Computed example of a mutant assay.
Amino acid sequence: MAKPSSLDTLIELAQENADEAGKQLQLLSTERKNAEDQLKMLLEYRQDYAARLQAATESGLSASNYHNFRQFIATLDEAISQQNKVVAHIDVKMESGRQRWYAEKRRLSSFETLRTRHARQQAVRDNRAEQLASDEMSAIMHRRVRRNH
């Protein structure tokens, strides 16, 4: 079995780093979807509560109940604002994660290109050595044939 080269080790490490960056990006994507779902739920809840307030206002509502409705809606608005910030923060982390993943993939690709280039150069050297050996063998055979005649 061939001894692994340092380039093979670098490729293995780069692959591990790219895989890890991909996993982190996937986790962030799941986290973002959950945050989006929560934001959607808050928006729906706010819309429902605003509709309840509208219906209660039309049927008559005491000032204290009106105040409670408005205060609860303001609390929902604050929760929605905070959730929007959470989603935006995750978006920033995702972009950073995406950039890291791209960088790791480029690094891996560079190492693989180097390995391919090295293998190609080694094949050229091997072919030359084989050709030299063949030429030398032909020369020896030619000399033997000439001596025998």
Results as ranks from 00 to 15, higher is better:
84 N>G: 04
21 A>W: 11
111 F>N: 00
98 R>F: 08
149 H>W: 05
56 A>L: 02
55 A>N: 10
42 L>V: 04
31 E>Q: 15
121 Q>M: 06
20 E>P: 00
119 A>H: 08
120 R>A: 06
135 D>T: 02
135 D>V: 03
118 H>W: 05
89 H>F: 01
57 T>S: 09
54 Q>H: 05
105 K>I: 10
119 A>F: 01
76 L>T: 00
45 Y>K: 11
50 A>L: 06
72 F>L: 00
115 R>A: 14
72 F>R: 09
99 Q>R: 08
134 S>P: 01
15 Q>E: 11
67 H>W: 01
80 I>A: 01
14 A>M: 08
117 R>V: 12
139 A>P: 10
134 S>D: 06
9 T>F: 13
74 A>H: 14
44 E>T: 09
48 D>R: 15
126 D>A: 11
104 E>S: 12
64 S>R: 06
19 D>M: 14
129 A>N: 01
9 T>D: 08
79 A>C: 07
144 R>F: 06
17 N>S: 04
102 Y>K: 15
21 A>S: 14
5 S>C: 12
81 S>N: 07
47 Q>R: 09
82 Q>D: 12
124 V>G: 01
19 D>P: 01
120 R>C: 05
112 E>W: 00
9 T>K: 14
78 E>G: 09
135 D>P: 02
17 N>D: 13
36 E>M: 13
2 A>V: 05
64 S>M: 07
108 L>E: 03
